[in-house]
């Protein structure tokens, strides 16, 4: 027990770890940030995680927590409720996000006024349970986020599968739309929701005028052939393994591991074996 304690204390120092109730510094010379509170002129941690210091601001970032949104983030969400002129979206945040009817693209021209008829057929666009990709537009006074899908890249999701990982494992990348050469598209939502789907040709998405409401709000999957299906499930299994080992996802990492699995596996189901996953993680750390 004592040895464990020593080890833990040493490693906690090297990473600047703390846990609730530990006093960090005096509040006279420092300001308190997220994850802290002030008690008796002391800044005290309120979550377990890493201490971060920016000039005079001390904050503690929890390792695993719910997604805390920022404006401009790309998120993947699921519709939970249809309300007057708005949808409620579950985006792994502290509260459901809001998608206003006025912040989605509607059929018949991108720019036009919302009519009463649009309001009546909201379930024609998004229904409860539908998945969508959107961007964080703004915040309400109570901290809930407002989303928008006013781009041809955003909108309803189909032809694929959702994987959920802790939000810390998705880092900010140049692009969160990733195309793997195995005919699979990935959308890495910053909220930890990841959409793995069949590759859609760029031409289908292009063109401002070419907004096809039928296609965008369609609920029917395209034809997905068997190799694509197994590629999708392979990518999904890889993400599951990376999540289990708490390894952050990047485009290069996913590509490398995909190639490695193709070389080493006999069947797609190999990825479900624990020892295969461990071999994969060992390969990742060896190449790193």
């Amino acid at each position: 027990m004592d040895v464990d304690d020593l080890e833990n204390i040493q490693s906690s120092h090297s990473y600047n770890l703390t846990c609730p109730g530990e006093s960090l510094t005096s509040s006279q010379s420092f300001m308190r940030g997220h994850g802290t509170y002030v008690d008796n002129e002391e800044v005290v941690a309120s979550v377990a995680g890493t201490i971060q210091r920016v000039n005079k601001l001390i904050s503690v970032k929890a390792i695993r927590s719910r997604y805390s949104p920022e404006v401009g983030d790309l998120v993947v969400g699921r519709i939970t409720e249809v309300q007057p002129r708005r949808w409620k979206v579950d985006a792994n945040s502290r509260q459901d996000a809001v998608l206003m009817l006025s912040s989605v693209n509607l059929p018949g021209g991108v720019q036009r006024r919302k009519l009463e008829s649009d309001e009546l057929q909201m379930r024609g666009f998004f229904e409860e349970g539908d998945l969508l990709v959107a961007e964080v537009q703004a915040f309400f006074a109570d901290g809930a986020m407002s989303l928008h899908t006013r781009s041809l890249r955003y909108g309803k999701l189909r032809n694929g599968q959702l994987v959920v990982v802790p939000p810390i494992l998705v880092r900010r990348l140049k692009s969160h739309f990733i195309s793997l050469p195995c005919n699979v598209d990935l959308i890495l939502g910053l909220n930890g929701y990841i959409w793995v789907s069949k590759h859609v040709k760029e031409i289908d998405q292009e063109g401002e005028q070419g907004f096809d409401a039928e296609a965008v709000y369609s609920n029917i999957n395209d034809e997905i052939d068997i190799p694509t299906r197994s590629a999708i499930s392979r990518v999904t299994s890889i993400i599951h393994i990376l999540r289990a080992h708490f390894i952050p996802l990047t485009d290069t990492l996913l590509l490398e591991t995909y190639e490695w699995t193709i070389e080493h596996e006999n069947h797609t189901t190999d990825l479900l074996q624990q020892d295969f996953g461990e071999a994969m993680v060992a390969y990742i750390s060896s190449t790193g």
Binding site: E7, N8, I9, A48, I247
Partner: peptide
């Protein structure tokens, strides 16, 4: 001890795999 042990394990696995790959990108 349990909480700090868990935190350092998770942080370690995040760090060890991101640093080299981050550079690779």
């Amino acid at each position: 001890a349990a909480v700090l042990g868990r935190s350092s394990r998770l942080i370690e696995s995040v760090d060890s795999s991101t640093q080299p790959h981050g550079l690779g990108v």
